[in-house]
Design a binder for these strands. Structure first.
Length: 994
DNA sequence: ATAGGGTTAG
């Protein structure tokens, strides 16, 4: 029995010679176990049975009965129990038993057993630690100790540990053991240290076939074909008989392009084939299948293909398992042609009616992207099982055929089959990519409950994903409770991110961290995204550090997330640094970089990055183009836009609704309404955003009738307008003085479409009334709406008073505007213009004088600044900050300094020319000034300040910040609700257009 | 032989 244990653990460590060990050890095991004096023999046979069947519960029951039988298990039985736990996959129980065994009760076999357990469980670090403890004890070791230890060296990838083991083996005289030497040769060659392997090999006095094989394989693996051939000749001269491993190793010589040894290779192949036939008995189908599946497990797919070719050439008949394995190999290679060839081979051998083979064919075809071929295999099977159905369901979903996937699910139910967790998870996957899939998912949820698989972690994770995607976060949260599966955590994090709840997402990340779990690349990518959403640069940097430390920066998914985080924080330079360190960026990484430039107002940089992308021969996709077109639109760069358009057509992206919509928008914003119209007409799928771009574009160009015509067409085609549509419609009305239409739409929006008017809609209405001269009516609308009036509304109205020469209303409106915006020069300028139009020059002068006395007072709205990882938030006239005195003093000083430099609170030009953009202007101005003042106090000179504002920056603040950047020599990055503004040396990256 | 979570856009 003891030998059996050792034997099998050795077999695990030195896989190439597995068959040797089994044949040597078996006879000993029986005689020993039966003749052992102290333990009742039935325990051993039960334990052996548990090991063979991998039956952990049986083993545990046996252990329990041994304990309850009153006898403390002595050493021999304990060793067997440890082995049983190891073989049945419970490393923790094995270790518990080992720890419970007193030190003086442990013998070498105990140690070997626990070491073998760690080797088998692929847990090299803890196992190697145990080995260090063993070395400190007085026990002397044998090859059976070294075998698992060497395997763990291989697993741990530690060449240092292997070198020290080499020395240790030499010291205790075990290096001359072919088992030990073979393992070392194998390790050295796996670490690429082939010369050390050869040195060891050459030093061996006795070498067996396995050792030769290992050395030859080392050469073949490293493409040292000439050395492999030389070694083979040497081997041949020893007269040792080559085995099938030798032959298969040789068969791989010549796979590389190197043709220098063509004739030698031919000889070798002929020789190998002859030997294969002679070795017929050794190379039966089972051995071949074993080799194939070993290749599959190691991910060496092409090696498996080559091996399969050799197998076909030999006289061995492939069986169904051969094809199951090979089809799995091909599925991983995603190679349709090869798959078809193997399908042909299956048909010739009439194995297509074996269910497992049929299922493998289906799987291979769906993985290769051919659902139709999979379906035809499915249809031709006489007998199908649940796996066949599941593969069709998941395969259809995988290939974007969601309806088809759901169809299979329905058919399955109709056939009276009970879905299992695979079925449910697969069909839910289809729902999750379906736009209206949530309702369906709810139904499938009830099926999952009926089938009792809701607690399955795959099922619940997919449900969390589906519910999050459709905004039903609460339902997702319910499912997430008690989930201990990392994928669920990731899905939940992503769910929060999708609804912009970045705080909650980061909280999950923190909880995970604090519980000792580190998460994986996806976790960290999610965390980066959340940090980006919060513009939390410090947190983002920490996450970036984790990414680098754990090697996730090689994962394009993850590093693109980090890139995006920096860009969302306005850190274009950091992003560029990260980007240049990506070995070969893909389309997404490039697009992230380009879109980040656009978001940060560096449209030129975006376009030049695009040209680099073309040079690097990465194909842009529809995301890239949508972004680029936006850049052109912001730059009003019609020519560049046209060139990009040509690229879009050339690269077949002219069918994507996103791209086309942004093109329509670009042409319209660039003033080329004809091309916008033409493009729009030719669009196949017109989404709501496409219509909106057209309607808003036409309205902006004052082409109201046509805008309303488009609106009509849109409705008649069954497209439901949204709030953006009505902004376009109402602004179109206002531009053409269509008051009754404006009212009509304003009410129809609520009554027929259930859209509550926002402040933008009211703005349009007020604008329309003002322009039409209905000043009192406009005032009435303002006072009746459920919002605080915005300053821009009053400004519009005041301007209308000037045009209408209505100084009574004008005065009233100016007063209201001034209570809202005491420091807003616009009010004074407009008011003075009203008086000027009425020829009341004294009042003009007094209005101008009032303006000069302006002080900064109320400042609701909020802005925040992130200093030393703490967010400082400022709201209207905020005096709650602990350093408020300092801040206000600084601000006074700042305003004084910039006035000296020429700052005038706003300019007259900006005031009389009130355009659409101004309507969304912040109701509360100066929170950003407070934030900047605090930033100036708290950071050393020339540090870049980053301020974020919840609303759009207004003209006055914009102008002030330009001066601040000049006077105080600071880069100031302001992110407002709309875009980034990079201020420096008195100018802003937006070119004063936003 | 079958199932889950991730990066870019209007």
């Amino acid at each position: 029995m003891q030998l059996r244990i050792r034997g099998s653990s050795t077999a695990n460590a030195l896989t190439p010679r597995a068959h040797h060990i089994h044949s040597h050890s078996h006879s000993h095991s029986l005689s020993l176990s039966l003749s052992h004096p102290h333990s009742p023999p039935q325990w051993f046979s039960i334990l052996r049975h548990a090991i063979e069947a991998s039956d952990l519960p049986l083993g545990k029951r046996a252990h329990a009965r041994i304990l309850t039988s009153g006898h403390h298990p002595e050493r021999f039985l304990t060793n067997n129990l440890i082995t049983m736990y190891a073989k049945c996959g419970s490393l923790s129980s094995a270790r518990k038993l080992f720890d419970a065994t007193p030190h003086d009760a442990r013998d070498l076999v105990t140690w070997n057993a626990i070491l073998a357990a760690y080797a088998q469980a692929d847990n090299p670090y803890d196992g190697l630690h145990l080995f260090r403890l063993l070395r400190h004890s007085a026990l002397s070791t044998t090859r059976h100790t070294l075998a698992p230890v060497l395997k763990m060296c291989l697993l741990s990838g530690s060449s240092f540990a292997s070198a020290s083991l080499h020395g240790y083996a030499l010291k205790i005289g075990l290096l001359w053991d072919v088992f030990v030497a073979g393992a070392l040769v194998n390790i050295y060659s796996k670490f690429g240290r082939i010369r050390e392997a050869r040195l060891l090999f050459d030093g061996m006095a006795v070498r067996d076939v396995v050792l030769w094989n290992l050395m030859m394989k080392a050469y073949v693996d490293t493409c040292l074909e000439h050395e492999a051939l030389l070694l083979f000749s040497e081997f041949h001269r020893t007269g040792l008989r080559p085995d099938d491993v030798t032959l298969r190793t040789l068969a791989r010589v010549g796979m590389s392009r190197n043709t220098a040894f063509e004739s030698q290779l031919k000889q070798l192949r002929a020789y190998a084939t002859k030997l294969f036939i002679r070795n017929g008995d050794d190379s039966d189908v089972i051995a071949w299948n074993k080799t194939l599946s070993r290749c599959l497990q190691r991910g060496e797919a092409w090696e498996a293909v080559n091996c399969f070719r050799d197998m076909i050439k030999s006289s061995v008949a492939c069986d169904s398992l051969t094809f199951v394995v090979m089809l799995s190999v091909v599925a991983s290679l995603n190679c349709l042609e090869l798959g078809k060839q193997i399908h042909g081979a299956v048909m010739r051998r009439e194995l297509d009616q074996v269910v497992s083979v049929g299922n493998s064919l289906i799987n291979m075809y769906v993985k290769a992207g051919s659902v139709s071929r999979a379906r035809s295999v499915f249809g031709q099977m006489n007998e199908v099982d649940l796996i066949s159905w599941n593969t069709m369901i998941s395969g259809s979903a995988l290939n974007g055929l969601e309806e088809c996937s759901i169809g299979f699910f329905v058919d399955l139910l109709r056939d009276g089959l009970l879905p299992d967790q695979f079925t449910i998870a697969s069909v839910l996957r289809a729902c999750s990519s379906l736009e209206q899939g949530c309702h369906l998912a709810t139904q499938i949820h009830t099926y999952a409950m009926k089938a009792g698989v809701v607690l399955d972690s795959f099922v619940s994770t997919t449900l969390i994903d589906v519910y999050s995607k459709s905004g039903r976060t609460e339902e997702a949260e319910v499912l997430f409770v008690n989930q201990d599966d990392l994928a669920s955590w990731n899905a939940m994090m992503h769910g929060y991110i999708m609804r912009d709840d970045f705080h909650k997402a980061l909280r999950l990340y923190k909880i995970l961290h604090e519980s000792g779990e580190r998460g994986d690349g996806i976790t960290v990518a999610n965390a980066a995204k959340a940090a980006g959403g919060l513009v939390g640069l410090e947190q983002g940097r920490q996450i970036h550090a984790v990414v680098v430390k754990r090697g996730f920066n090689l994962d394009l998914f993850v590093i693109s997330g980090v890139l995006d985080m920096y860009l969302k924080c306005g850190e274009v330079e950091s992003a560029s640094r990260v980007f240049t360190e990506i070995p070969s960026p893909d389309d997404v990484a490039w697009t992230t970089m380009i879109s980040g430039c656009v978001e940060n107002g560096q449209e030129d940089h975006a376009l030049s990055t695009y040209h680099q992308m073309r040079l690097s021969r990465v194909q842009p996709d529809e995301y890239t183009f949508a972004t680029l077109v936006k850049a052109c639109s912001l730059l009003t760069a019609l020519e560049q836009g046209r060139q990009i358009h040509a690229n879009i057509v050339k690269l077949n992206c002219a069918f994507d609704p996103f791209v086309m919509t942004s093109l329509v928008d670009m042409y319209a914003k660039c003033g080329n309404i004809e091309d916008a119209r033409g493009l729009f007409r030719r669009m196949n799928t017109k989404r709501i955003a496409s219509w909106n771009a057209m309607i808003v574009g036409l309205a902006q160009h004052g082409n109201a009738e046509e805008a309303l015509q488009f609106f009509k067409d849109m409705k008649s085609r069954g497209v439901t307008p949204d709030r953006v549509t009505f902004i376009g419609v109402l602004s179109a009305c206002s531009h053409s003085g269509l008051i009754s239409e404006a009212y009509e739409n304003f009410y129809s929006m609520q009554k027929n479409y259930g859209i509550e008017p926002g402040i933008e809609h009211y703005s349009c209405l007020v604008d329309a009334l003002s322009r039409a001269g209905q000043l009192l009516e406009a005032e009435k609308v303002i006072s009746s709406m459920p919002f605080e009036a915005s300053a821009s509304m009053y400004r519009t109205l005041l301007n209308a008073c000037r045009v209408q020469v209505d100084k009574e209303t004008g005065k009233r409106v100016a007063e209201k505007l001034l209570t809202l915006e005491p420091s807003d020069s616009a009010a004074y300028v407009l008011l003075s213009n009203v008086y000027a139009a009425a020829n009341q020059w004294e009042n003009v002068v007094s209005a101008r004088n009032m303006m000069r006395k302006v002080n900064v007072k109320k400042d609701p709205g909020f802005s925040w600044v992130d200093l030393k990882n703490k967010v400082h938030l400022f709201v209207a006239g905020d005096r709650s900050h602990e350093e408020t005195g300092l801040i206000y003093n600084k601000l006074e000083y700042v305003m004084k300094r910039i006035r000296e430099e020429g700052y005038v609170p706003d300019t007259e030009f900006a005031l009389v020319d009130v355009e659409e953009e101004d309507k969304e202007c912040s109701l509360y101005y100066h929170s950003e000034k407070l934030a900047i003042a605090y930033g100036l106090i708290k950071t050393p000179p020339s540090t870049t300040l980053r301020v974020i504002k919840n609303l759009r920056v207004c003209g006055d603040c914009h102008s002030a910040i330009k001066y601040i950047s000049k006077v105080f020599k600071r880069e100031i990055v302001l992110r407002d609700a709309n875009r980034f503004h990079h201020f420096g040396s008195g100018i802003c990256s937006c070119g004063d257009y936003w």
